[in-house]
Write a protein that binds this DNA or RNA. Structure first.
Length: 578
DNA sequence: GCCGTTTTCGGCCCGACTGTTTTCAGTCG
């Protein structure tokens, strides 16, 4: 059994539990449904594989997995099939499950459409709506028909239109700039998955404090980038930017801003757990505030801090709010001290115009200085990446001389001499050891040959880790968000070898990489692996991606001491040559 | 179906919006 198959098994099992949960929701078994959906989500964030955990008898140590669900997992692992799911599927009329994927269509309506119109798929529903069959049903109108068609249209679009976090952060800045001009708006914060710094964002929630909600909404809706207004009420509005990306704005009073921000930031699972905790303490928590149940008086709400503190908790930062143990850690006073952008002294992966970057070495240094960085590692591609004008030994030597010369002109800044060497399919690097020995650091990355099996790909990474001159493994899984799946590598072996060899794993901060991701970097830290953040910038304005790398690290519970970018240049060079 | 410093049984977050509801059910986040 290869690791690749096992990783796929985790995904398959998660999907099975997801489907069981969705069917239970349709059947009205809401609590049971939630239990399955939660187990499905938790499995998605595992770095261990379920088959191995099953063999070690550890399935029920996963939160949300008890006797019933572990039996389903075991059945799947043994037979590749789950009879319970088959029976559940058969218990629903065909198409009902599919229809509930549409916005505004839940179980009740899906059943009705299925029973009375015989609709068995989204396509058939579209036909029924277009031919006026839906409005003939009792309780439906032409308005319902329009809404169904809109929901179908949006369903087809949203399958592809999640934006990368980096793109969303720029959009938030544009919106902030625009809202800053409105004197009725007191505060603006992006909430939702964008505030939690999730790697992609499906729609953006903007929260505004104002005593004049209608004026605030009117001002927002006047943004020229808005291509469609979906709804515009007195305290909220939904609009579309650039033809496909939905932004919701909500206006609340300044007194409730903190509670509303807490609520709209989520995640859903975090909020449910927090509200349950509130109930146990005799409170009721909603987007309006924290209220004492006995007399309905308000205990907190103006700030998020006040909400957490009144529940006896330290402030939990948005990046941690995924119900991955943060509330339990907060209760125990064991929240990690997270790395922040201020801790980061330099960027450990930047390309110049010596390969496929656009900026000169001097331009990079000047841009980094203006960002307050103390060092930047120049890591251009090596020769096998012909398309990127990769360096050979001779040009690399020339580049290092140039860097030495430039460094003499800086007092509190240094360009580090590095390279991003290519890990070839046999695990060797495409540049000689004697050239690498002269450098401050060597990033080694896979750029081709993604198709191999797990054993071969893992061995490729392992031989790079074991290479005498390699300091950092660049974008370790090679994934491109929404474009290319991660390499099927055996993290267990990669983590233990990296820790043993003192080789760093990169948190690549380029917006469509974010690799290692949050879950993997957390697992790496637990295994004693240290990490390096690199923007992989190919232009000076991309040095700003450092904040995305920090965001991944924070979501991964990473502390400053496990990221070498927090070291000053002298400590860093020493660490790299250990 | 899961889970436990109220509980191994009996809970499981909370409120807004939408439509055609004339006092509320369904859906959503």
């Amino acid at each position: 059994m290869t690791h690749l198959v096992e990783v796929r098994e985790n995904l398959q099992i998660s999907r099975i539990l997801q489907e069981i949960g969705e069917i239970h929701a349709i059947r009205g078994e809401l609590f049971r449904s939630r239990a399955y959906l939660k187990a499905a989500r938790n499995i998605l964030t595992l770095t261990e594989n379920l088959r191995q955990m099953h063999e070690e008898g550890k399935l029920q140590t996963i939160p949300g997995i008890g006797r019933g669900i572990s039996e389903i997992i075991e059945e799947f692992l043994a037979s590749g099939d789950v009879k319970y799911l088959k029976d559940l599927r058969a218990s629903l009329p065909p198409g009902v499950h599919e229809l509930t994927a549409l916005e505004g269509i839940g179980p009740k309506i899906a059943f009705k459409l299925s029973q009375e119109l015989g609709v068995e798929s989204i396509e058939q529903l579209e036909t029924a709506a277009r031919t006026g069959k839906i409005q003939s049903l009792k309780g439906f109108s032409s308005k319902s028909e329009e809404n169904v068609l809109k929901a179908i249209e949006r369903h087809r679009k949203t399958l592809q239109h999640r934006l990368l976090l980096g793109q969303v952060l720029w959009l938030i800045e544009e919106i902030r700039d625009h809202l800053a001009d409105c004197r009725y708006i007191l505060k603006v914060e992006a909430a939702g998955s964008a505030r939690r710094m999730c790697e992609t964002v499906g729609d953006l929630d903007i929260l505004v404090a104002s005593a004049h909600p209608e004026k605030a909404i009117k001002h927002f809706a006047s943004m020229p980038q808005i291509t469609r207004i979906l709804s515009k009420g007195t305290t909220r509005s939904s609009v579309v930017f650039g033809g496909s990306f939905q932004v919701d704005i909500r206006v609340v009073s300044a007194e409730s801003f903190g509670a509303a921000l807490q609520y709209f930031t989520g995640s859903k699972d975090h909020n449910i757990k927090l509200r349950t905790l509130a109930v146990k303490q005799g409170y009721k928590l909603s987007e309006y505030g924290l209220f004492r149940r006995k007399d309905d008086t308000k205990a907190a709400g103006e700030t998020e801090e006040s909400v957490y503190h009144n529940l006896g908790l330290p402030y939990i930062c948005p990046e941690l709010r995924e119900d991955r143990g943060e509330i339990e850690a907060a209760v125990a006073g064991e929240l990690p001290e997270l790395i922040s952008l201020e801790d980061v002294q330099g960027d450990l992966h930047v390309h110049s115009d010596w390969s496929d970057g656009t900026a000169t070495l001097r331009e990079i240094a000047e841009a980094a200085l203006s960002l307050g960085l103390a060092y930047v590692a120049i890591c251009d591609h090596t020769r096998s990446l012909g398309i990127a004008r990769g360096l050979d030994e001779e040009r690399l030597k020339k580049q290092t001389l140039e860097i030495d010369k430039l460094n003499k002109g800086f007092e509190e800044f240094r360009l580090l001499k590095g390279v991003e060497a290519n890990i070839m399919s046999d695990g060797n690097l495409d540049i000689s050891n004697h050239a690498l020995k002269e450098l401050d650091l060597v990033v080694a990355s896979v750029h081709s040959g993604f198709k191999g099996d797990e054993e071969k790909l893992t061995n490729r990474i392992l031989s790079a880790i074991n290479h005498e001159n390699v300091s950092i493994i660049g974008h370790p899984t090679g994934r491109l968000i929404q474009r290319r799946q991660p390499l099927p590598i055996d993290f267990d072996k990669v983590f233990s070898t990296a820790a043993e060899q003192n080789v760093l794993l990169e948190i690549n901060a380029f917006p469509n990489r974010l690799d290692l991701n949050d879950v993997n970097s957390r697992a790496a830290q637990e295994r004693g692996v240290k990490m390096a953040i690199g923007t992989d910038a190919h232009a000076v304005n991309q040095l700003g991606y450092l904040d995305l790398g920090v965001a991944v690290a924070r979501r991964g519970w990473i502390t400053p001491k496990n990221v070498v970018n927090t070291l000053d240049v002298a400590q860093l060079v020493k660490q790299l040559h250990q």
